[in-house]
Computed example of a mutant assay.
Amino acid sequence: MTLPYDTITSSLQGKTAIARLHDIGVLRITGVDAKKLLQGQITCDINKLSSSDGLYGAICSIKGRIITSFYIVQKDDDILILMDRDLVETTLLHLKKYAVFFKTELINDNDAFHVYARATLNNMEVVPEKLSETLPITHKNNIVSMTLNHYPIDTQWLITDLENTSIKEENKELIALSALAVRPIITQAQSETVLPQWLNMQRTGGISFTKGCYTGQEIVARMQYRGKSKKQLALFQWEGNLDTTKELMDDQGKNIGHVFSVENIQGGQLAQIILNIDPNETEHFLLDGKDISMLPLPYSLEATK
């Protein structure tokens, strides 16, 4: 079986890529009511968080728009929420409005931790139907290691305090391949502009539909069960440089999406694009006047019966 990502991931063959994620910050939450506070604010189920299981999710506005998306781990008695560094203070101020009713403390710990990504190839050939709600965690030598995905590459995030110098960067330019997981962290500029389903979070373990109420839950649930939006996150690649600020067009000149994020991979570009249409509705995707190639997602968007 030939994997669809072979030509992109071949540069990782026989290598390990490790790079510090300078744009990822940490919001630390402490106190006996930390989980109670978060259960009413996040899209994932905080009751599934443990020292051995992390989570992926989002905090939404009352309109269901994502304020921040994140990965979350438990370290000793603290909860660490890993998100875009520039959104830590924004998220802290948002949660403070609700935290007054709980015995908890919210701390901007951007300068207390370093977060690294580690990527390697594996031999997994089966595309997951959907991604798990829980993410395996190990604790060793004062490093918290969380496995984000196994397909199409193995990716871990490593969280450590500033005193730990045991993690060494290598082949760090290849960490951009982790975008293939299509399980994104939004930036400050994207805050409150997208709904969780537009980032496929209903299939990537980011939304629990059984946990009960949280801020924005009514909008998120309505989109899931009664919504008609076709918006979804898709994966594309092309060679050379294109103007990614331009809208994605079909061959009839219709606006069908916009670039959400883009990474440079050895002279080529790997982009996550929010489509406004079902991808089967067109044969051509044009960005900056050039036909670009769509890659299959590393999971299914179709719910199994």
Rank of each mutant, 00 (worst) to 15 (best):
L21S: 06
L21H: 04
L21V: 02
L21R: 04
H22M: 08
H22D: 15
H22W: 09
D23C: 00
D23A: 00
I24A: 09
G25P: 00
G25Y: 09
V26D: 11
L27R: 12
L27N: 06
R28F: 01
R28H: 00
I29K: 08
I29C: 12
T30A: 08
G31K: 06
G31D: 10
G31R: 10
V32I: 15
D33F: 15
D33T: 13
A34G: 03
A34F: 03
A34L: 13
A34N: 11
K35F: 03
K35Y: 13
K36E: 13
L37R: 10
L37V: 12
L37N: 14
L37Y: 14
L37P: 05
L37I: 12
L38Q: 12
Q39R: 14
G40H: 02
Q41V: 04
C44V: 12
I46Q: 06
I46D: 06
K48F: 11
K48P: 08
K48N: 14
S50Y: 05
S50Q: 11
S50M: 05
S51G: 09
S51F: 05
S52A: 14
S52I: 07
G54C: 11
Y56A: 07
G57N: 03
G57R: 09
A58E: 01
I59H: 03
I59Y: 02
C60T: 11
C60V: 12
C60K: 04
C60R: 02
S61G: 10
S61C: 09
I62V: 15
K63Y: 09
K63R: 15
G64N: 07
G64F: 02
G64Y: 00
R65I: 06
I66L: 08
I66M: 13
I66A: 09
I67V: 04
I67M: 02
I67A: 06
S69F: 02
S69R: 01
I72E: 09
I72A: 15
V73H: 03
V73P: 08
Q74C: 03
K75V: 14
D76W: 01
D76K: 13
D78H: 08
D78T: 02
I79N: 01
L80W: 01
L80I: 07
L80D: 13
M83H: 00
M83L: 04
M83W: 01
D84N: 02
D86P: 00
L87V: 03
V88R: 13
T90Y: 00
T91Q: 06
H94I: 02
H94Q: 11
L95G: 02
